[in-house]
């Protein structure tokens, strides 16, 4: 069982800001995240291969970014929230040594479906690594 509470639809207002979440970007997170998502593209775990592709170091794969976005939205909403959509666009790459800080706000509340949309971004030292939206159905 979990002691964590899930936000109820009635408790959420459009414009409400989510607390920021800072995620240190490390070699284990990038390489481990790629393997955990079954992505063996060399640029995500082999620094030499990444450099040959024009990158200074290994870079995070998009499936890990999606996973971190899920974590950010879910850690705010609680375990009973249900994802309807998770849509992201990538910008600046995540390289080891950087920090990505998520911020977001509730952009839409749909009372008929008890659904909220969160608009979020994950920013690193080079700009936005990810921007996107998450649709959640709340109890």
């Amino acid at each position: 069982m979990t002691s964590k509470k899930t936000r109820r639809f009635e408790d959420v207002r459009p414009g409400e800001a989510l607390p920021e979440l800072a995620i240190p970007i490390t070699v284990p997170l990038i390489a481990g995240g790629a393997i955990a998502t079954r992505d063996y593209f060399p640029g995500h775990h082999d620094a030499e291969a990444a450099r040959a592709l024009g990158s200074p170091h290994i870079f995070m794969n998009i499936l890990t970014t999606s996973g971190l976005v899920q974590r950010y939205a879910e850690s705010w909403a609680g375990p009973g929230a249900r994802f309807g959509a998770l849509k992201i666009k990538l910008g600046a790459p995540n390289y080891p040594g950087d920090t990505m800080t998520f911020s977001g706000e509730v952009s839409v509340c749909d009372a008929d479906r008890r659904s909220v949309e969160i608009t979020l971004k994950g920013k690193n030292s080079m700009g936005n690594h990810v921007t996107g939206t998450v649709a959640l159905v709340l109890p």
Binding site: M1, T2, I23, L29, G32, G33, A36, T37, T64, G67, L68, Q70, R71, E74, S75, P79
Partner: peptide, 21 residues
């Protein structure tokens, strides 16, 4: 595979890892 994914991502929702929950 789900548990390892959650470990990497830092996702702690028991819906994915706690059979009883």
């Amino acid at each position: 595979m789900i548990r390892q994914w959650c470990e990497m991502m830092g996702v702690d929702n028991p819906l994915y890892t706690d059979a009883a929950y």
